[in-house]
Design a protein around this nucleic acid. Structure first.
Length: 433
DNA sequence: TCTGGGGTCCTAGGACCC
DNA sequence: TCTGGGGTCCTAGGACCC
């Protein structure tokens, strides 16, 4: 049996942990650069605010309805996610962290009442971290996703739904839109609707060969999973990434090479850090740069350049050098640039790097410097020490006008508990924030 | 004025090898 | 009449996930 635990409206719930005054109010969180709506509270959904809606288009509406609006605070979300996962780990020997707000738990062999167990998990996460979660339990991962969906959508479930016996599964699938099934996206939903397949149950009645032919083996796997045959296993150790990308839109459009070079150097530095976290080196690097596609009346330009590195590396210094050279090769004066990014590819384990007879880089020295840089930055905060090319802060940086404090990760942002005038200690009275 | 940022897997087709 | 049989690697494109 698999349980899928999913945090409700995760980013919004994170913003509410230290702001209980936001409970019951519409709240939204914006994407990077305060661009689009990427998380909504139930109240915001009730108001009809859509996922992915550009914030500037509905700014007046948000104001009129007194919606609380936040910039993305990934430091906060990452830390709270970590705490949720730690708590979940106590309830299973096998935990798969699927995304920042979702995890699968293998409940096989736990001799318990699934629903009661799920309720306990839910209460514990709520008490320890303050994040509300929904839990679906079923014999396969895809069915656990279905159960989770029902736990959220159907009133009276109390955030928990167990699909164990065939009757309950059939009833659930007959009432489940095929397009909502995990792994069936917009295109496949359109294809399926065109042959009168509307529910997950309809999909289950299709011929295996047809599914295999039109939806590849992935489609067939989903079908088997819906039929209760587990094809997807727990992934306990996250596989090393095959490509790592760091890209951002600029806070303001950029025309000059130098600020863009600072941005690209910073993205290369992030890629290098990510490579070192997973103990990998990259053999190839790509830089891309483009203008704002939402302004078709302005001159458009988009280019990328891939360069093969002589020896695979994860050194910030080396990656910045190549990224910067690639940028200089593709940059043209006379355009207003909106976004740039660095992607590293051909990733392999750092202990198995193929050297070169003609390599002039002192790799041991680079590794030693990176080790010290990482240690210092881990202790004192990101970019406490960095490469000069990254610059000292420019207008290309993200726009984040409504950023909440880093309540759990920065000393200066920790909430202060002030005893009320009567001198009572907070423990004695109401919940004091 | 203003529109996110990451990833994965599969298939078909072409070029090449013996 | 009739034209083999087995591979690999690479790329582009399309689908999906959060």
């Amino acid at each position: 049996m698999f349980a899928l635990v999913d945090c409700n409206n995760f980013y919004v719930s994170c913003e509410r942990v230290f702001r209980p005054d936001l409970n019951g109010r519409p709240v939204v969180v914006l994407s990077n650069n305060d661009g689009c709506i990427i998380a909504r509270s139930e109240e915001a959904k009730q108001l009809g605010i859509k996922m992915g809606e550009p914030a500037f288009k509905i700014a007046a509406f948000l104001e009129q309805n007194q919606v609380a609006v936040f910039s993305s605070n990934y430091v906060l979300y990452g830390d709270l996610s970590h705490r949720v996962m730690q708590t979940l780990g106590r309830f299973t020997p096998e935990l798969e962290i699927y995304s920042i707000d979702e995890a699968f738990l293998n409940l096989t062999g736990l001799p318990v009442d699934w629903a009661a167990y799920a309720r306990t998990i839910r209460e514990t996460v709520g008490r320890h971290v303050g994040i509300p979660v929904s839990i679906g339990v079923a014999p396969t991962k895809v069915l656990a996703k279905v159960a989770n969906h029902r736990a959220k959508k159907i009133p009276g479930q109390n955030g928990v739904c167990v699909l164990a016996d065939p009757g309950a599964i059939e009833e659930a699938l007959k009432n489940f839109d095929v397009g909502e099934v995990w792994g069936i996206g917009r295109q496949y939903a359109k294809l399926l609707n065109s042959i009168q397949v509307y529910t997950a149950w309809d999909f289950l009645q299709l011929d295996d060969d047809w599914v295999r032919k039109r939806m590849t083996v992935m489609g067939l796997r989903i079908k088997k999973e819906l039929a209760g045959i587990a094809c997807l296993e727990m992934e306990l150790i996250p596989p090393a990434k095959k490509a790592i990308c760091t890209s951002r839109s600029f806070g303001e459009e950029q025309t000059e090479l130098e600020p863009i070079n600072e941005a690209v150097a910073t993205y290369a530095a992030r890629c290098a850090e990510k490579l070192r976290w997973q103990r990998s080196c990259a053999g190839m690097l790509m830089v891309f740069l483009h203008t704002n596609g939402f302004k078709p009346h302005e001159p458009q330009y988009a280019r990328n350049l891939v360069c093969k590195l002589p020896v695979p590396t994860n050194s910030t210094i080396e990656l910045i050098r190549y990224a910067s050279a690639a940028l200089r090769a593709i940059y043209r004066k006379g355009y207003r640039y909106k976004k740039a990014g660095v992607i590293v590819l051909e990733i392999g384990p750092e202990e198995r790097v193929q050297g070169s007879l003609f390599d002039r880089v002192d790799r041991a020295k680079h590794a030693a410097v990176m080790r010290e840089m990482d240690a210092i930055n881990a202790k004192y905060g990101r970019d406490t020490i960095k490469v000069a090319a990254q610059g000292l802060g420019g207008r290309w940086r993200l726009r984040q006008e409504r950023l909440s404090p880093c309540y759990t990760t920065r000393w200066s942002d920790i909430i202060k508990v002030v005893a009320p005038a009567g001198g009572r200690s907070p423990n004695e009275g109401d919940r004091t924030q």
